[in-house]
Structures are given as structure tokens and as C-alpha cells.
Amino acid sequence: MGSAAITHIATIPSNVRRTPGDVLEELFSIGNSEFNAGMKQSKYGYPILGLYELVTLITLGEIKTTWGMGGASMGWCYVKTAMWQDRWKEEKRRDSRVKRIF
């Protein structure tokens, strides 16, 4: 039996969306050449500016009850404003809530 939870948060620019053939392969990356060649199922790619692992996961129950989301996302989604403010807005306490991956 599986379970659903939010475990990581990625920071992406709001105004950049790439299509296959449009990604610079010289940059540090994983899978850019495959994406550019059309070998991935994704239609769009987004540069990841930062990746964070949550110290305390957000459970499926919280997703449904606290933030009124219908259920687990089947891919990625934007963090709801209320969720961000509750968990990560205060910069002075952010280090105890997330671990920066890069």
C-alpha cells in the first residue's frame, strides 16, 4: 500500500518554460539531452533554481483537510499561499523546516 505526501519543494522561475530543443545542454543538468531529443513524455521543462527536502512531510490528510486540496497531485503543482506562509515564510525559522539539496 502506497502513501502520498509532499516531500520536496523546488523553486522555479515564474516566467521561463522550455520546450524540447530549447534547453541549453552545457548547463549542469540531468536529462536535458533526452528532453531536447523528444525522448521524454514532458511537453515542457522548467529550470530548477533550488530544491528543498521538507523536514516534516505534509501528509495526504493535511493536503485534504488543512489546505482544501482534493487529493495528492499527480505531478507537480504550485504551493498554495496559505501553505507557504504556514510552513516556510519566516526566513529565520526556515532552516529548521527544510534542508537545501541545491
Rank of each mutant, 00 (worst) to 15 (best):
Y44W: 05
T65P: 07
L49R: 10
C77P: 02
M74E: 08
W76A: 06
S42H: 11
G38A: 01
T56F: 09
L51M: 10
V23I: 15
G61R: 13
L51Y: 04
E25G: 08
L57S: 09
Y44Q: 05
I58W: 05
T65V: 08
K40H: 15
E26Y: 11
T56R: 14
T59E: 06
P47D: 03
E26N: 14
S33Q: 04
M39T: 05
G70P: 06
L60C: 12
W76I: 10
C77L: 14
K64G: 02
K43N: 13
I63H: 01
G71C: 00
S42D: 14
A37V: 12
F35R: 14
N32Q: 03
L24G: 08
N36L: 03
G31R: 09
T65E: 10
A72Q: 04
E25A: 14
L49A: 05
L51W: 02
L49D: 01
S33M: 09
L54S: 10
Y52M: 14
E62T: 05
V55S: 10
F28M: 07
V55I: 09
A72V: 00
T65W: 04
Y46D: 03
C77H: 14
Y78R: 12
M69V: 04
E26T: 15
I63D: 04
S42W: 09
N32K: 01
S29V: 04
Y46M: 02
F28R: 05
S73D: 00
P47Q: 02
Y52H: 14
G50W: 01
T56H: 13
S42V: 07
I58R: 01
V55L: 08
E53Y: 06
W67S: 03
E53K: 15
T66I: 12
L49N: 05
G45L: 01
T66M: 11
P20S: 10
C77Q: 15
S29E: 10
Y52Q: 13
V23A: 15
C77G: 11
E34D: 13
I48C: 09
C77D: 09
Y46E: 00
Y52R: 12
Q41V: 10
E34S: 13
L27V: 03
Y52F: 09
G31C: 02
V79A: 13
E26P: 13
K40D: 07
L54C: 13
V23C: 12
L57W: 15
P20T: 07
G45I: 01
E26H: 15
V79R: 01
E62S: 07
Y44M: 02
S33W: 04
L54H: 12
G38R: 06
S42K: 02
G21K: 12
G21I: 06
L60Q: 15
N32P: 01
G38C: 02
P47H: 06
W67D: 03
G38Q: 00
G75H: 00
A72T: 01
P47W: 07
T65D: 05
Q41A: 06
G75L: 00
A72L: 02
L24S: 12
Y78Q: 10
T56E: 14
K64R: 15
M74P: 01
E62Y: 07
V55Y: 08
Q41I: 07
W67R: 05
I30S: 12
I63Q: 00
W67G: 04
G45F: 01
M74V: 00
E34M: 13
T65S: 14
G68V: 04
F28V: 15
